[in-house]
């Protein structure tokens, strides 16, 4: 499995929000920032494998819906207890109204 894949339509994600995207047994989270940029990370929190897409996006932070672990979704950086492992991020581009991510 290599390279760029289509994750969703650009309008499928609200501003300052997140949706879940599953692909070949993997799960990702696709974000749209308040300044209208798109980002992608692994879909599960590094603490207890909770789907981050159920969480709350505030500015550039995604907060896990279960234990309030916080990550910067632009960089993947863990932002304090209970999470201590960073989140993997993926390159994103928008082409023709479609959000593409590079799953590597």
């Amino acid at each position: 499995m290599a390279g760029w894949i289509e994750a969703c339509g650009a309008d499928d994600v609200d501003e300052e929000d997140v949706i879940r995207f599953d692909h070949e047994g993997r799960t990702f989270a696709i974000y749209r920032s308040p300044d209208d940029e798109y980002f992608a990370t692994d879909g599960l929190c590094t603490h207890e494998k909770i789907h981050l897409a159920d969480g709350l996006v505030m500015d550039d932070i995604i907060e896990c819906p279960k234990h309030n672990g916080r990550f910067n979704y632009k960089t993947g950086a863990a932002k304090g207890a209970p999470v201590c492992v960073n989140l993997k991020t993926y390159p994103v581009k928008v082409e023709g109204g479609r959000v593409m991510i590079d799953v590597g």
Partner: peptide, 11 residues
């Protein structure tokens, strides 16, 4: 179901 209410409860 699941974490369906989590985001609204957080807000």
């Amino acid at each position: 179901p699941g974490n369906a209410v989590a985001r609204d409860i957080r807000l």
